[in-house]
Amino acid sequence: MNETRELAVVTGASTGIGHELALCCARHGYDLVVAADGPDIHAAADRFRAIGVQVEAVQADLSTLHGVDELYEAIGGRPVGALLANAGRGLGDGFLDQDFTEVRQVIDTNITGTIYLVQKIGRDMVLARGGRILITGSIAGYMPGSFQAVYNGTKAFIDSFSFALRNELKDSGVTVTCLMPGPTETEFFKRAGLEDTKVGQAEKDDPAQVAQTGFDAMLRGDGDVVSGWKNKLQTMMASVTPSGVLAEMHRAQAEPGSGKN
């Protein structure tokens, strides 16, 4: 690693928003430690290296403490200028029909692994009196997610956690920003089994634009950013709409088979 450049750690960096966030970091001049749970993280790392920065790729299961420890060890004690905690997993279908092993995978990826990594790197940042943390939440955290109940619940946790941590660190020199995307054109819907739903088949946001919005907000030190005016409008409506109504609205979008004509 080039000791004259700052280091950014990006999780979920093989595809989608995480991949685009890593590209933002590389173009900004950060060296990278990137992680994902699949072998395609190594091909992604080659694309980041082509920009001219040094990249360490880590294939690890970030739903486990062991996987997070592997990633942390790969940093090698180097100060981290930016942590972009983006790794996440979704799961469609009714809660009672879901395999609980997959339910646990969603919870442990989106919450347990994320906050464990944030704690480990965040402590180092506080000691260094500086650093930026970007956590990928979701506008899904604003509404009860019928047929995505666990996923939306995890994002509600992350959205809330991000603001709480930001407040705790307000005098530390470390900023915390929560990126709240809406439906984005990524592998998420395929992996979550949501391709036959209305939301799965609808037009979605460009992950490159979403990532740039989040990256710019992180650099400014903003508390949160919702990408896209439609998503901003949706979050505003969610704050004044009864939860039962929101759940029914979400059902219309995420119920299996809702995308069939």
Results as ranks from 00 to 15, higher is better:
Asn2Arg: 15
Glu3Ala: 15
Arg5Ile: 07
Ala8Asn: 05
Gly16Met: 07
Ile17Leu: 08
Ile17Asp: 07
Glu20Tyr: 01
Leu21Gly: 06
Leu23Asn: 02
Cys24Ala: 04
Tyr30Cys: 10
Gly38Asn: 11
Ile41Leu: 04
His42Asn: 12
Ala43Glu: 14
Ala44Met: 09
Asp46Met: 10
Asp46Val: 12
Asp46Glu: 15
Arg47Leu: 14
Phe48Ile: 01
Phe48Gly: 01
Phe48Gln: 03
Ala50Arg: 09
Ala50Asp: 14
Ala50Lys: 13
Gly52Glu: 08
Gly52Lys: 06
Val53Glu: 08
Glu56His: 13
Asp61Leu: 05
Asp61His: 08
Ser63Ile: 06
Leu65Ser: 13
Leu65Glu: 09
His66Thr: 14
Gly67His: 08
Val68Thr: 04
Asp69Arg: 11
Asp69Ile: 05
Glu70Arg: 13
Leu71Trp: 05
Ile75Tyr: 10
Gly76Asn: 12
Val80Glu: 03
Gly81Pro: 11
Ala82Lys: 02
Leu83Met: 02
Ala85Ser: 15
Ala85Gln: 14
Asn86His: 06
Ala87Thr: 02
Phe95Arg: 01
Gln105Phe: 04
Ile111Val: 15
Thr112Met: 07
Thr114Ile: 02
Ile115Arg: 00
Gln119Ile: 00
Gly122Val: 03
Ala128Gln: 14
Arg129Asn: 13
Arg129Ala: 13
Arg129Phe: 01
Gly130Pro: 08
Gly131Ala: 11
Gly131Ser: 12
Thr136Lys: 01
Ser138Lys: 05
Ile139Asn: 02
Ile139Arg: 03
Pro144Lys: 11
Gly145Arg: 08
Ser146His: 06
Ala149Trp: 01
Ile158Asn: 00
Phe161Pro: 04
Phe161Val: 02
Ser162Tyr: 02
Phe163Glu: 11
Phe163Gln: 12
Leu165Met: 14
Leu169Lys: 04
Asp171Arg: 13
Ser172Gln: 07
Ser172Trp: 06
Val174Asn: 04
Thr175Ile: 08
Met180Ile: 03
Pro183Asn: 11
Thr186Trp: 03
Glu187Gln: 13
Phe188Arg: 01
Lys190Thr: 14
Lys190His: 14
Lys190Met: 03
Ala192Asp: 00
Gly193Phe: 04
Leu194Trp: 01
Lys198Pro: 00
Gly200Glu: 10
Gly200Arg: 03
Gly200Cys: 12
Gln201His: 00
Ala202Asp: 02
Glu203Ile: 08
Asp205Met: 14
Asp205Tyr: 07
Gln209Thr: 08
Gln209Arg: 11
Gln209Gly: 02
Gln212Met: 12
Thr213Glu: 12
Gly214Gln: 10
Ala217Val: 09
Met218Ser: 09
Trp229Pro: 04
Ala238Tyr: 12
Thr241Val: 12
Ser243Tyr: 07
Ala247Pro: 10
Glu248Cys: 00
His250Ser: 10
Arg251Pro: 04
Ala252Val: 05
Pro256Tyr: 12
Gly257Thr: 10
Ser258Asn: 07
